[in-house]
Design a protein around this nucleic acid. Structure first.
Lengths: 125, 125
DNA sequence: ATATAATGTTAGAGTACTCTAACATTATAT
DNA sequence: ATATAATGTTAGAGTACTCTAACATTATAT
């Protein structure tokens, strides 16, 4: 599978978060969460559907396929590791850590994420 | 000054690094360092020159203006802080840390950078 | 000195996003 | 029941990058 763009990873993550938190991820919900128009979201959904990562039926909730779910979960997990590391270890303000995590999650290596996790466990703090 | 794009920050940083290390930053050198064509670099130079961040005279070295220098130095400094933090504190492999630093430097907040520096100083390691 | 190599720019096309405007479909409110 | 609101898509344009191809200018090698 060719690597997803930064943007597509963000859409996928939004769908994942909305699916577990709220009443499901509709195009409007995703657009609102990401601060883009429904038109942009609709177009992104076509791209993700073509790649087999979601199923998008008009007026229904966007659903992640198993492959999409796996990818989304990975990104989401990275997000939370970074968020935790920045706030707990580095004492960065939570809202700033949130913004940083949302950007860093798309570019950081798995190695660095693992190193953060390991560090947090051994420091147990 | 409107925020620079990820890409323009990368070009600026390449110019900065080449200026201090090598025999100056020519369009060819910048292109080679970044792995893009001279055409792309030339186009980017026009953009940076319009913003008053560099001076580009054909067949001469690209020169940073004071403003461009300041910006480039900031990005470069972020790069080194991240690189140091990943390798020294988190024990990430240097080449992986290099790749990560090059991406994270463009998206991380000043707060998180400061927190990394502070952590490294107090841990003194 | 002059052919060849290196350097740099412009033109034009392609990709991946963004938006607004217009429209179609479905849900809701009374 | 039906007008209105909400929802979602398509078309078309704009931005910011990428590239190749063609060309002009400068440096170099003998």
């Amino acid at each position: 599978m060719e690597k997803l763009t930064f943007t597509m990873e963000n859409y996928l993550e939004a769908i994942y978060e909305l699916s577990i938190q709220e009443n499901g991820a509709r195009v409007s919900d995703i657009a609102a969460r990401m601060g883009v128009t429904k038109a942009s979201t609709s177009s992104a959904m076509s791209t993700l559907a073509e790649k087999g990562l979601i199923i998008n039926e008009k007026y229904k909730e966007v659903v992640l396929t198993p492959e999409g779910y796996k990818l989304a979960k990975t990104v989401s997990k990275k997000h939370h590791v970074i968020q935790g590391f920045l706030t707990k270890i580095l004492r960065v303000d939570p809202s700033i850590a949130e913004t940083d995590a949302c950007a860093i999650e798309h570019v950081i290596s798995n190695d660095s994420i693992k190193a953060m996790e390991k560090f947090m466990h051994t420091e147990k703090k």
